[in-house]
Amino acid sequence: MSIKVLVVDDSSFFRRRVSEIINQDPMLEVIDTAKNGREAVEMTQRLKPDVITMDIEMPVLDGISAVREIMASTPTPILMFSSLTHQGATATLEALEAGALDFLPKKFEDIARDKEEAIHTLQQRVKAIARRRVFSPRATTNLRSSASASSAAASEALRKPELNTRTVSPSVRTTATNEVRSAPVKFKRTGKSYDILTIGTSTGGPVALQTVLTALPANFPLPILLIQHMPATFTAAFAARLNSLCKIKVKEAQDGDPIVKGQAYLAPGGKQMLVEGRGASARIRIIDGNDKVNYKPCVDITFASLAKLYQSKVLAVVLTGMGADGRDGGRMLKNMGATIWAQDEKTCVVYGMPQAVTKEGISSESLPLDKVAQRIMTEFS
């Protein structure tokens, strides 16, 4: 059975072009098109598509508002098309927070190096998110409330070093209420010590990172390196957004930044993030990198750099994302005695990157997204 797609855009040319690309894949079928957000909401309720591709700027009802209405009434996987501008980045991040699962540049030449690769990328993204069950944003609200409580508990744990266990519970969403329900699970400290935390992610990463980072306390004891597959024009806006929401400080990494505790550094899009030095002399290096590398930034490259300098003192977490970025770098970390955890399949938008490190035997734990921060903080309780 083919994946049914609804294409939404106010440009007739773009609707036609996207429809042609999607219909080239025998597993995909465009069942209809809509020229504004209001039509998209109505058609979604009537046609029940498996996936929606959505423009942001449209008449009658814009894409962000349409996402909110669709997720409230008929939750459906949504792929946003965005302009690669600061304004476009901000709007896209709002759409992802509203419930959209992924995004692509609206100009196909910005998607990939050649036409065929761009076509393949669009088709693969549609198929990837079609497999994902989605829920009302009310679940996200519950996660935020849980994150606030987790952060308070984590701060208290840092003041009570005698505690070495924490009772937490994985998230379970019910399709009837879209609420988070907990079942008790006890995490135990590994007894290891760490000098740095790093998190790598791709598809679904913006919301995943927000979920994890907003649950960390202001007195978090490690520096954090973040690698999110994202265009160059998006990372500054994303870092600023995280900084406004988190208790820790978040910034887009710059070449020469000192690596300090309680600060998160987001790898800039289009570049590679490395580290050099140790302790007080540790610095971030931002380089152009090899054009043959598929991802800029690349999780493998940052992980490999950390393996060389921090060795066993690294705590690495691989979150939702397509592909296997993080597997090779994770293997290098593992060989040096570092600790790697992965997000579990149930809570991933795309179980690609976490699956790669899990199947390889690199990851020692598989965690639900809303418990990742609590599991991290258990190591310091």
Rank of each mutant, 00 (worst) to 15 (best):
P59S: 15
P59Y: 10
P59I: 10
L61P: 00
D62A: 07
G63A: 09
A66Y: 01
V67Q: 10
R68H: 08
R68Y: 09
M71G: 08
S73W: 05
S73C: 08
S73A: 15
P75S: 05
P77N: 11
I78M: 01
L79A: 03
L79I: 06
L79G: 04
S83C: 10
H86P: 03
Q87W: 11
A89W: 04
T90K: 15
L93P: 06
L93Q: 03
E94A: 14
E94S: 15
E94Y: 14
E94I: 09
E97P: 03
E97Q: 13
A98I: 00
A98N: 10
A98Q: 08
G99V: 03
A100D: 07
F103V: 02
L104C: 04
L104G: 00
P105N: 01
P105Y: 03
P105M: 04
K106W: 06
K107F: 05
E109H: 03
R113F: 11
E116I: 09
E116G: 09
E116S: 13
E116L: 11
T121M: 15
L122V: 13
Q123A: 11
Q123M: 13
Q123R: 14
Q124D: 14
Q124H: 12
Q124P: 12
R125Y: 13
R125M: 15
V126Y: 14
V126D: 13
V126Q: 14
K127F: 09
K127D: 02
K127M: 15
A128E: 11
A130W: 05
R131N: 10
R132P: 12
R133V: 09
V134L: 03
V134R: 02
V134F: 04
S136N: 08
P137M: 00
R138S: 03
A139N: 06
A139M: 06
T140V: 04
T140L: 07
T140K: 04
T140R: 04
N142R: 07
L143N: 02
S145Q: 12
S145H: 10
A147P: 03
A147D: 07
S148I: 09
A149G: 07
A149P: 07
S150Q: 07
S151G: 01
A152N: 05
A154Q: 00
S155L: 11
E156A: 12
E156T: 13
A157K: 12
A157I: 15
L158D: 03
L158T: 02
R159Y: 02
P161T: 05
L163P: 08
N164P: 00
